[in-house]
């Protein structure tokens, strides 16, 4: 059981161009930068109840947002696969963030991401991404990060509402200057698998390993099992069991039950 504050906040607010030339697209406003796969998701769109430890330890429990501009380009390539390069710059949102802060003197944070997407077959796809990130941190210096993401999805087109399988992985390497002489070099990763065995039922498992951006001696290892039921498009019930082992504190076992109720219309999610 947790108790917390009750409040509301503007998660994202953006204007996106639809008609720039040269296959460019510009987004302005407050947005979730393309750091791998998870950060761009709203919590309700993620299969598991909580984001991986990597996200929580390096950013915030729900990732991070930038206030600024995002420019993406569909890269023409001779092999004719989907390749999208995104360059983003902006101020970190007001929410606390373990790796980056709102810089003084208008210092901006920058994110770059290259997404490569392949149709392996009619029913399966493979996505591989590379992320780079730089911005001011709360020690008054800067943090630089690099990341890799790899996702395989299987969804038989004929029965895509009845069955699916996703295997998703991310690795994040961080280099955080914490004093004039010291740099913390840390990393985090997760691997998750989710299988939809009926129209409304999903099971999943996730393995998390994550250090903390300012301390390579602290790390969390978590193993998570998930059962999710979606009675309608507007309701999600998820039951999660998580065992977390910490090398700086006691280990914990958690059982989390989450209900989500959607009210009103909701734009479709990206693939």
């Amino acid at each position: 059981m947790t108790t917390g504050e009750i409040g509301s906040d503007l998660e994202i607010a953006t204007l996106t161009s639809l008609t720039l030339p040269y296959q460019l697209q510009l987004t302005l406003g407050k947005f979730k930068p393309v750091i791998g796969k998870i950060n761009i998701l709203h919590p309700h769109a993620f299969s598991f109840v909580d984001f991986p430890k990597l996200t929580a330890n390096y950013f915030d429990s729900e990732g991070m947002a930038l206030e600024g501009a995002s420019l993406s380009w569909l890269v023409p390539n001779p092999y004719d696969f989907y390749q999208e390069l995104t360059i983003e710059a902006g101020r970190v949102g007001a929410e606390p963030n373990a790796s980056l802060v709102r810089g003084e003197n208008s210092q901006l944070s920058y994110v770059g991401h290259l997404k490569n997407f392949f149709d392996v077959s009619q029913n399966s796809t493979l996505e591989f991404g590379i992320t780079g990130l730089n911005g001011p941190n709360h020690f008054g210096y800067s943090t630089t990060m690099g990341g890799l993401d790899l996702t395989y999805k299987w969804k038989p087109v004929q029965y895509n509402v009845l069955q699916s399988f996703t295997w998703q992985n991310e690795l994040l390497l961080s280099s955080m200057r914490i004093s004039g002489a010291a740099v913390a070099k840390t990393h985090g990763a997760y691997s998750l698998a989710e299988y939809q065995f009926a129209q409304r039922w999903f099971v999943g498992g996730r393995y998390d390993y994550s250090q903390y951006p300012d301390d390579a001696n602290r790390r969390d290892i978590a193993e998570t099992a998930l059962l999710r039921f979606q009675p309608t498009e507007f309701q999600i019930v998820a039951l999660e069991f998580q065992h977390t082992e910490r090398n700086y504190d006691r280990s914990t076992n958690q059982v989390i039950l989450r209900f989500i109720f959607g009210i009103g219309t909701h734009a479709a999610h990206q693939y």
Binding site: Y82, F118, E127, V157, N160, V161, A268
Partner: peptide, 13 residues
């Protein structure tokens, strides 16, 4: 099912 097609990035191309 035409109601439920996955919007794969390859279609964006």
């Amino acid at each position: 099912n035409p109601h439920f097609v996955d919007p794969k990035p390859s279609y964006i191309l």
